[in-house]
Amino acid sequence: MKLDRRQVLGLTAGAAVLAVAGVRVSPVSAAAEETAKRVMQFTGGKKPEAGKITLKAPEIAENGNTVPISVSVESAMSGNDVVASVIILAEGNPNPEVATFHFTELSGKASATTRMRLAKTQNVVAVAKMKDGSVYSVTRQVKVTIGGCGG
């Protein structure tokens, strides 16, 4: 069979789709469970509420090696309204832990930016723990393009 260029491009693309489909079959729920367990550890068993915390991440990451993420929590950062820490977890990585930020009143704001590795398309979870013990969380899906070309 002689393939012309377009067919080759298509075939390679087809293989990529299959690869993604293959990954989807794997038990995502186990990883999500592990992440949920980590969240509970972090919050001391308290179920986080929605709101207050924002997670910024690309909808589609061009490369899973370096995905920029920013997290910020609404807070006066003084008195009782202080964010103590924020944990970032990735459901689909070999280990869910990514980073834990620790803030103080001297932080001024509860916001931080870093760059993370994502093994595949998955949910990224951020949980904030306030000084008064309340906890908030947010989840965002980041699609990771597998392989691509590019040597």
Partner: peptide, 12 residues
């Protein structure tokens, strides 16, 4: 202390 971070292998 101003800011701290515990870093896991998932950081780039």
């Amino acid at each position: 202390k101003v800011f701290g971070c515990d870093i896991d292998p998932a950081i780039s």
